[in-house]
Amino acid sequence: MKLGIVVLEGPYQHEASDTAYNFTVAALEKGHEVFRVFFYHDGVNNATRLMVPPQDDRHIQKRWSELAEKHNLDLVVCVAAAQRRGILDEDEMKRHGKDANNIAPGFRISGLGQLIEAGIQCDRLVFFGD
């Protein structure tokens, strides 16, 4: 089946990000197609490569990035939500005259239309949030 996954909460603050990740791994293991993981609200904070968690804890961003690489996942960060919270890629950095960007490998910034498209294309859409 084709699944879409929506993450509405940030890393470490809320378990939603962990649940979404574990769900995604299980769905892939079962042979389902994960059409897209869409990060919205504070969920966009999962995409910063600048997080430095303690070494004995999980690295939530790296975990997503590695999963994306392994399974060619489409990790999409909502541009409007990302701009509010300071998640930028190189294009956004230049456009807004900022001195840095922080998006992690495997994530891409795009519009809310990507969420609607996931709703149209996927057999199931699953939300994880607060």
Binding site: Y40, G111, L112, G113, L115, I116, E117, G119, I120
Partner: peptide
């Protein structure tokens, strides 16, 4: 989301 989604004619 609703405002953006309106363009998709669902």
């Amino acid at each position: 989301v609703v405002l953006i989604g309106a363009a998709f004619e669902q």
